[in-house]
Amino acid sequence: MATLRTDRDLTRPKRSSLLQRANVQKWIFLTFAIVPTFGGYLLFALYPNLLSIYYSLLDWNGITEPKFIYFENYVRLFNDRYVWRALGHNLFYMATVPVCVILISLVLSYLLTNKGYKGTSFYKVLFFFPNVLSTVVVSLLWAFIYDGSFGLLNALLKVFGIDMDGFYWLGDTRTAMYAVLPPYVWAGVGLYIVIFMNAMTTIPKSLYEAAILEGAGHMTRLFRITIPLITPLIRVSAIFLVLGTLKSLDLILILTRGGPAGSTDVIGLYMFNMAFGEQVQNYGYASAIGMFLFVILVGAKLLVDKLLPDRGYEY
């Protein structure tokens, strides 16, 4: 006896076919969306890092036949006093640049957001301007400021009765390392002012109004309301600044080339000179320094996680 097929039975194969087609389209989209990015990461990030591990076991200048020397480069690294001197400079910038950038950015962002100044958008663009400039332009600008003969800094000090007598701030071992600090801070503050201002505008004004009624001043509101509510953003900013400071070499390369007498040398610049220097070209030893820098970066990330735990506040 034949059975009657209902409308639901007739539409079931069509619905199943549509679901299968949608599933296939989804996987095609995911493939084209993920594969290029993941392939680029494998090709330009993971593969070079794995290759650097292999290079760090070689005595090789990039031209002659490489010689496998096992861990001799690492033994040389730990006995190289110039590496530890450069690491000390890195640690100095790591401890000062993020703190200065975040504190200045927080204070200026709070004032621009809560003081009601006219032209806030103009100030935001003005502070962000250094981030539009290339590192070369920033470096040359500050090199001119520190110039002994025509520098703006010496001219400004002379107005206040301090004659530096042609002192070149980047050419003296006593001042060169400290003179590199302001360009780092000046070039980084603008971006974080914009980021912090955008975060502060999302905080309900009722919280500030309630604090004002209770007699809280600006510093109390900043440290009791604003900073706790944007702590996750400050934590991420600190991570970016710490890791960026440890890896950076371009600004110092243009300003001082690590001089005078190595007083501004950093790990990244020392590694660059080992690989592409005019007198020394040793890719194997430079790769070992790169692996050492990688370990330091991981340690710095863990240190920031320890000092700034990932906890936020709700309102």
Rank of each mutant, 00 (worst) to 15 (best):
V194H: 00
D250M: 03
L207Y: 12
F196L: 12
F240M: 13
G244N: 02
E209Q: 13
I254Q: 04
T220I: 15
A238H: 08
G217E: 09
M219L: 15
P183E: 02
R224I: 11
L243W: 12
A187R: 08
I195G: 01
G188S: 12
L191S: 11
S206A: 13
E214Q: 14
E209T: 05
S206E: 13
P260Y: 05
T226P: 13
T226N: 09
G262C: 00
T220D: 15
I234A: 06
E214W: 08
K247D: 08
R224V: 04
L191R: 12
E209W: 05
V185E: 09
I230G: 06
I252C: 01
G188L: 05
P232T: 02
T226M: 12
M219Q: 11
D250N: 01
L253N: 15
S248A: 14
L243A: 12
I195V: 13
L191Q: 09
L249C: 12
M200N: 08
G190S: 00
P183R: 05
S237Q: 07
V189Y: 01
T226H: 13
G262D: 03
G215C: 03
T245P: 06
I195C: 05
T226I: 14
L251N: 02
Y184K: 10
Y192F: 12
L253C: 07
V194Q: 01
I254P: 00
G188Y: 04
L253F: 14
S248F: 02
S206V: 10
I225L: 10
T202D: 08
F240W: 05
M197W: 03
Y208H: 13
A199F: 04
V189A: 04
V194D: 05
E209V: 06
T231R: 14
G190C: 02
R224W: 12
G215H: 03
G262A: 01
A211H: 11
L241M: 04
P260G: 07
R235H: 10
I254M: 10
G258T: 04
I193F: 09
G190Y: 00
V236H: 06
G244R: 01
E214P: 11
F240C: 12
T231S: 11
T256S: 11
K205A: 02
L249V: 12
V194F: 02
A261L: 01
R224L: 10
I230K: 03
L249Y: 15
K247E: 11
N198R: 03
T245D: 05
M197A: 08
I195T: 03
G190V: 00
L243F: 07
L229T: 11
H218R: 15
L233K: 09
I195S: 06
R224K: 14
I254G: 07
G244Q: 02
G190N: 00
H218D: 14
L243S: 14
R235Q: 05
R235Y: 03
K205W: 03
T202S: 11
D250G: 08
L241P: 00
L207F: 08
T231A: 12
D250Y: 07
P232C: 09
I252L: 09
H218I: 13
L191K: 11
V242I: 15
P204G: 06
G258F: 01
R235T: 06
I212E: 14
R235K: 13
T231G: 07
V236R: 04
V236F: 11
F223Y: 11
G215Y: 04
R224Y: 14
A199L: 09
T220E: 15
S248W: 02
I254C: 07
L229D: 09
A187M: 08
G188M: 06
G262V: 00
P232L: 05
